Simulated assay, not measured.
Amino acid sequence: MGLAPIDPIDPFAICARYEIEVIQMSSLPCDCSAFKSGEQSRFSAMTVPCGIRSAIVHNDTHHPLRQRSNICHELAHLFLGHEHVPPLNEDGERAHDSGIEAEANFLGGCLLVPNEAALHILSNGLAARAQLIYGVSRPMLDFRLRVSGAHVRYQRRQGLG
């Protein structure tokens, strides 16, 4: 897509590039009010097969930064080749594989703030503006700066570690 390793991404542009349809939950012809009111975290996003393609249905009532993170999480499932599984198991309970979800959480964060970008943020004093630059929440930024090793790498470059 012509991006440098430190450039922020647009998850919607990535979806368009890979012909992944992005569907806002509010556009669905059904009553989704249980997911939109009160506890908005009940549903964030999910990837669904659409013939030979995939679509991402996401909760557009979430904060825009959360929506970006949700979509990157779903992109991660696709990029990692995770199989589509029904959202509920035979007992009507939510199907959840913590290992697969952890993989998608990690890669989703890497898409938003790659390791190179995390080091760039610290090396150039951008921590105060990085949320705006990369379109991420403070918890996501802090997570990526920590798990990317950017703090350690920056300290070593400065001769402090």
Rank of each mutant, 00 (worst) to 15 (best):
P139W: 06
N89M: 07
A76N: 06
H73L: 06
L80I: 02
L141F: 02
H120M: 00
E116H: 07
G149P: 07
G2S: 11
P49W: 04
L28N: 12
V57A: 10
M140I: 02
A150G: 05
R144K: 06
S123I: 00
S148N: 04
Q40A: 13
V113E: 01
D142C: 10
I20K: 08
G99A: 04
S69A: 15
G108T: 12
G92A: 06
S33Q: 06
S37Q: 14
V48M: 08
S26L: 13
D97H: 14
L122I: 04
A104E: 11
L160G: 00
C15R: 13
M25V: 13
H73A: 09
L145V: 04
I14D: 08
L119G: 00
C15E: 08
L88F: 12
C15N: 14
G109M: 03
L75N: 10
L88H: 07
T61A: 09
R153P: 00
A102W: 12
P8N: 00
R68W: 03
R42P: 07
A16Q: 13
R42T: 11
D7R: 03
I20L: 05
S37A: 12
L160I: 07
E74F: 05
G135V: 01
A45G: 15
A128R: 08
L111N: 03
L145K: 03
V147Y: 02
D91Q: 14
L122F: 07
S41I: 07
R68Y: 04
F79H: 06
